[in-house]
Design a binder for these strands. Structure first.
Length: 873
RNA sequence: GGGAGCUUAGCUCAGCUGGUUCAGAGCAUCUGCCUUACAAGCAGAGGGUCACAGGUUCGAACCCUGUAGCUCCCACCA
């Protein structure tokens, strides 16, 4: 079998993904194994893959692949989200380009367009995930508007309504005047803008005096129903109980006092517009103020405003300012840096508005969700996010779930013409429900609520409804609770918290055991990668350039949980280089197969190398398992990287590599293959394609079942710590020899003799390896100095390499003197500690012992060096 | 305004119970090498006032207090 000298990701990756699909290696059905489940955070159905998805899904794939190898019944459920408002906005935009206005379409016509759009763009992102190597069970792909899923959303609405946890109420909400829909608090983005603060004079009734208020929104004076001052404010005490006249509209309003008003801000005097400001609304309730809704849902002035009717709110602001000025009511204007809420989807300035909406009552529902995160039944990685979670959950507000949109799950409520309504699953049931109230209606008498539910009201059921958990028990009982959730901290409240709530409400159990929060992928300048900035590389192109494995490794190299990832292509380059390194190591090992001489027995150097490498592997494997347990993914990768590159390639392979043209013994060959296979296994979650390719070359594999995807994760076996320590000494000796060679221009090709004064620690077991790697012709153990030679010290043993020719003795002396000086300084600091009575009395025995050892070691080292110095003369 | 977190090498980060391998890793940089697996490589080297200032302790990157800077979350002050 011809092995290519270069690894070609493009063809390899497509080949193996097709193979995995063909053999259904990611398929999962309940069986008697322990399940390991991850549900994908469903991307927007019409979205395309961005770098955030890449990071997020690489981590999920890594976790699920490792679990699969560990013998769990591993399942990763893929799917997409209908993303109500986001998708509807895209469809509206697309129709507008075609000259079609949403308002000209019926609901059904619009939904037809929306479904067309969904079918056209839906699932592109899932195809892209396959390029990444995502090991999802694609047969289980779910969409939040699938029939059964849709039904579960409706049923949970009905259920919560029955339990009194969903209610309909008129409240202040964030209104998007462009999309004409209510928004949840989370869908409002506050931006810093420079606005103007207008000082407006109101005449006081029964006096010639004026009171001046400060406002950023002068147009809302049309809805003013009070003036408010702080009761403690001495300047305005005389105004309590008086009345003022709203300019232009000439309405008389009371002057009230409330602590809410800040004395320091503006004039310390506030105009109150209960219909158009959250706080004013609360003030209005408290003081029983009249509520004047002076704005239409599209942001124009309503009839109730009396003036400027039909004018847009921002035009009105301009006009009213001029008119106030003309009438002598505008005292002054100031610049004011201010925060203004914008709709996340339409970017329109959000209008606080009084509106009749559906709500979920959150306080009680949230309790188990809060407790079970705080007590670590559900673990957050990193745990710092528990703080913001608690903060939010303890102050949780009712959730506005109705949206004035068409794309989504339609609210199962029916209204008659008299302001009465029932909640029911179907029209027939609604009619029946009305009959129970002695209202004998036909379908013509009632109308279903036109609104749909907030998109998160469907995705909060995701871990349950992907298994049709509301209707069949078998699957959900097996796979639920899921194991790990990997998501962005931005949607902790939108989604994570609510899934936990739904989990306890409907399963009386947590939805997942661990939540891993990824960071944000940023560019080199620290900006978030986004389509609009155009600073995001195309993941598909990246994978074409560096290979999917290279990109996966690049993404994970520097992304501890919760940390932002400053992405740079050079990371992927490092990933690609790593893949190349592994490929070349493979070529070397595989090449030995035909060099095997059955008669050749294993050399002692190879024997010790194999033993050491096995121990080293196990010791790192133990560390890896611990890293995974703690979700220290980057650490796990780096430990794997060093194990493969440094321990295996740089040391092991060099130790067992036969000289050019020489034969290979079969023991070493087979041991090397076995070690390589174990390395491939721990590499596989990071680099699925490359490892499968090499795996297929390294042994006879049964089709399908022989895939590395289902190979078993190695068990930690015996670790010979002493051997590992001896190896460290060995490697330092080799480095010592290399240094002597380098500093004295002794070429590697020229063999040297090594004398060892073994007064300290040195393992003769490694001597053959020293000879092999250091090109040492012979090793002699001595009991004294060897004059006329270079010396270095490792672990208290002296190593001598006799001078060859033309050696710089003075230079050598100088180096030794420098080392003596350094060691004396070190000794001094150790002794100052040991001479400190308090230290000797207080420090634990082990520490004290350590310091004494340091002292002795330093003393003997100085002695050795001094002797060496005299021997040079 | 309320809350949380961060500051360690040029960059990205480890450093777990205050002491042992406490100043580390990878990348980048520099110096040699195209040495029969690999120049996408090999062999070496340099690089730090652990943000700053105090304190506790025999001993502090680590604990305490203060200062400065950065980040995030919540609230939304007209």
């Amino acid at each position: 079998m011809e092995i290519p000298s270069k690894y070609d990701p493009a063809t390899t990756e497509d080949k193996w993904y097709a193979y995995w699909m063909e053999h259904k290696l990611f398929k999962s059905v309940p069986d008697n194994r322990i399940p390991f489940t991850i549900v994908i955070p469903p991307p927007n159905v019409t979205g395309v893959l961005h770098m955030g998805h890449m990071l997020n899904n690489t981590i999920q794939d890594l976790l699920v692949r490792r679990a699969r190898m560990q013998g769990f019944n591993a399942l990763w459920v893929p799917g997409t989200d209908h993303a109500s408002i986001a998708t509807e906005a895209k469809v509206v935009q697309k129709l507008r380009k075609e000259g079609i206005k949403k308002s000209d379409l019926s609901r059904d016509e619009f939904l037809k367009h929306a479904w067309e759009w969904t079918h056209k763009h839906g699932g592109i992102i899932l195809e892209q995930l396959k390029k990444l190597g995502a090991s999802c069970d694609w047969d289980r792909t779910r969409f939040t508007m699938d029939e059964k899923y849709y039904e579960s959303v409706i049923d949970s609405f009905i259920d919560l309504h029955k339990k009194g946890k969903i209610y309909r109420g008129e409240r202040m909400i964030n209104w998007d005047p462009a999309a004409l829909t209510a928004l949840s608090d989370e869908e409002v983005i506050y931006k810093e803008v420079s606005s103007k603060l207008y000082y407006v004079k109101y005449k006081i009734v029964g006096s010639d005096d004026f009171v001046t208020i400060a406002t950023t929104r002068p147009e809302t004076i049309l809805g003013d129903t009070a003036i408010c001052v702080n009761p403690k404010d001495e300047r305005y005490k005389h105004l309590h109980g008086k009345r003022a006249i709203v300019p232009l509209v000439n309405r008389e309003v009371p002057i009230i006092a409330d602590e809410y008003v800040e004395i320091e801000f503006g004039t310390g005097c506030l105009k109150v517009t209960p219909a158009h400001d959250m706080n004013d609304f609360l003030l209005g309730e408290k003081h029983q103020l009249e509520v004047i809704n002076m704005m239409n849902d599209n942001g124009t002035i309503s009839e109730a405003g009396k003036l400027y009717i039909g004018m847009d709110r921002f035009d009105c602001r301009k006009q009213i300012t001029e008119d106030l000025d003309a009438a002598g009511h505008l005292a002054k204007t100031e610049e004011l840096p201010n925060k203004v809420g914008y709709s996340e989807r339409s970017d329109a300035v959000v209008e606080p508005r009084l509106s009749l909406q559906w709500w979920v009552s959150m306080k009680e529902l949230s309790k188990p969700a809060l407790d079970n995160v705080m007590n670590d039944n559900i673990r957050f990685f990193p745990p710092k996010f528990k703080n913001s979670y608690r903060n939010w959950m303890e102050n949780v507000k009712d959730w506005c779930i109705s949206r004035q949109l068409w794309w989504g799950h339609r609210i199962p409520a029916w209204y008659d013409g008299e302001g009465d309504f029932v909640v029911a699953k179907t029209e027939a049931e609604a009619i029946a429900a009305f009959s129970a109230k002695n209202k004998n209606y036909t379908a013509a008498d009632i109308k279903q609520d036109p609104d749909v539910l907030d998109t998160w009201f469907s995705s909060w059921l995701w871990p349950i409804s992907v298994f049709d958990g509301f209707y069949t028990k078998e699957e959900v009982d097996y796979y639920y609770p899921t194991n790990d959730l990997v998501t962005a901290p931005e949607i902790m409240f939108f989604w994570v918290a609510r899934m936990i709530i739904a989990g306890y409400e409907y399963r009386n159990e947590l939805p997942f055991r661990n939540v891993y929060y990824t960071g944000i992928v940023r560019d080199k300048q620290g900006r978030k990668m986004s389509k609009s900035l155009g600073n995001s590389p195309d993941p598909i192109e990246l994978m074409a350039k560096f290979g999917a494995d290279g990109v996966r490794v690049g993404m994970l190299l520097s992304s501890p949980a919760g940390n932002d990832l400053p992405f740079d292509e050079s990371l992927c380059e490092q990933g690609r280089n790593f893949a190349n390194k592994i490929w070349n190591a493979f070529r070397l090992v595989k090449g030995w197969e035909e060099k095997i001489d059955p008669a050749l027995s294993q050399s002692p150097a190879s024997k010790i190398a194999v033993e050491w490498m096995q121990s080293k592997f196990n010791s790192v494997l133990k560390q890896l398992n611990d890293d995974y347990e703690k979700f220290r993914i980057s650490e796990a990768l780096m430990n794997t990287y060093k194990l493969v590159w440094d321990d295996f390639c740089a040391w092991y392979l060099e130790m067992v590599k036969p000289p050019f043209g020489s034969a290979m013994d079969k023991e070493t060959y087979h041991a090397s293959v076995a070690i390589f296979e174990n390395l491939l296994k721990v590499l596989h979650p990071f680099m699925p394609f490359l490892t499968e390719e090499i795996w297929s070359y390294l042994g006879e594999r049964e089709p399908g079942k022989g895939s590395i995807c289902v190979a078993s994760w190695p068990e930690v076996s015996s670790i010979n710590e002493e051997l590992i320590a001896d190896f460290t000494t060995f490697s330092e000796v080799i480095i010592g020899i290399r240094n002597v060679r380098k500093e004295n221009n002794i070429p590697n090709k020229e063999s040297v003799v090594l004398h060892i004064n073994n007064s300290g620690k040195n393992s003769p077991n490694f001597d053959p390896a020293v000879q092999h790697l250091g090109n040492v012709s012979s090793i002699n153990y001595v009991t004294d100095k060897v004059s006329g030679s270079f010396m270095f010290i490792v672990n208290q043993s002296e190593y001598f390499i006799p001078f060859t020719e033309n050696v710089d003795v003075e230079g050598e002396k100088k180096k030794i003197n420098e080392e003596i000086d350094y060691t004396r300084g070190f000794l001094k600091s150790v002794e100052s500690k040991l001479n400190n009575e308090k230290f000797v009395n207080n420090a634990p025995a082990a520490v004290l012992e350590g310091e004494r050892k340091k002292q002795n070691d330093a003393l003997s080292k100085i002695k050795m060096l001094e002797e060496k110095l005299t021997s040079l003369n």
